[in-house]
Design a protein around this nucleic acid. Structure first.
Lengths: 198, 198
DNA sequence: TGCAAAACATACCAAATGGTATTTTTTATG
DNA sequence: CATAAAAAATACCATTTGGTATGTTTTGCA
């Protein structure tokens, strides 16, 4: 019954949310357990009651917070897409400019974690890879539908396009840390051109 | 005279090179000074004789090693470009697949540092921003020349293209950490299509 | 109401961290 | 060769780190 607002479930969730905030801003390794318990007002005993160690907490944070949150923003908007170029663009426009939780200075939490942890930890790699894989499938699917319905050229390779779009997203999140939101807009303008030409 | 193989200059350079290796693989914050002196066989006294602190060492590493190294690979090949689409593609193909110092698992050292340090440290941000700015200028310049010589359409916005290409690079470096070199090739195939259509 | 298990609190610890203070060795130069 | 400055080595330190051991309190339920 942990998931229906039991007191203990609340504590666990609060730890994950505060940890997410800190990790988003400072990175996973640079966020100490002491930092987390300081901002949550939860004691170390409580922390280690809910999580075996820091790594397990990080994985829970990915699987229980980041994964569903990102799927909602990146994948779900594409599922009922009619005009592929338009829908892919809107999804990107939305995630870059309309997500109040995200700050251009700190980039994308998922991209950040991949950058930091994928080479260091197999389990982080897998958990984050699953998310990106679902995103890739969703984009590929939309493009494929576009080919069928005739709005996308037959010569287009949907998997290549998906990779290209995803790389653009990760990369502009990186550049945004240096250049601010202005570069998001420059990127989006070219993305629109690119998609319309497919 | 520090720069012409004086003994002290050698020590300093060796510290920077070993630090670069470690930072590339583990990140800046996760690389301790003890790690660096352990792999260099240099003592802590020597380290702090050459660098005021860890931050200054990191900046020296960027300015004296990474910056010139990256300029050589990213910018210089573009300076004498004839066919823009071809030359931009070749530059990218080369940096992604032909640089023996880089490992797909660990991505690009410059991109990694931006991701980790740009939000946390103004000076790192500036030093790395300078590098990306020069890259952007070089790409824009090539595209602009292509418009003049007629190989690139007039409707193309060279700055937008530069941002798009750079974002793609940063992003595929990120994805490569999860997916390996295969995704580099997928990305490059679509990049070629994109450039040829400009 | 009693009581075991769940949830949380407190106090502690060894190792690692960035950095300093001090001493020794090496080097260039008069 | 003498010597001062540069370069490097040694020993130390306060703080932070992830984690444990051992309590105490709260909760569900027979």
């Amino acid at each position: 019954m942990v998931f229906f607002m039991s007191k203990a479930g609340d504590t666990r969730l609060m730890i994950l949310q505060k940890a997410f905030d800190l990790v988003y801003k400072h990175g996973f390794q640079a966020t100490s357990i002491d930092d987390i318990i300081a901002t949550t007002q939860v004691t170390k005993g409580a922390f280690f009651y809910h999580f075996k160690n820091k790594e397990e907490m990080g994985l829970a944070m990915i699987n229980e917070l980041m994964y569903p949150g990102m799927i909602k923003v990146l994948v779900e908007p594409l599922l009922a897409a009619q005009d592929p170029a338009k829908e892919v663009y809107l999804m990107m426009h939305n995630v870059l400019l309309k997500q109040p939780m995200f700050n251009v200075k700190y980039g994308c939490p998922a991209v950040n974690l991949i950058e930091e942890m994928a080479p260091l930890n197999q389990q982080f790699n897998q958990a984050l890879g699953k998310l990106f894989n679902e995103w890739q499938n969703a984009i590929s699917q939309v493009i494929k539908q576009g080919k069928i319905s005739g709005t996308i050229k037959d010569s287009v390779d949907e998997k290549q396009v998906a990779y290209f779009v995803m790389a653009g997203y990760s990369g502009i999140r990186n550049m945004g840390k240096m250049l601010g939101t202005a570069c998001y807009k420059t990127y989006l303008a070219e993305l629109k051109k690119y998609l319309n030409q497919l």
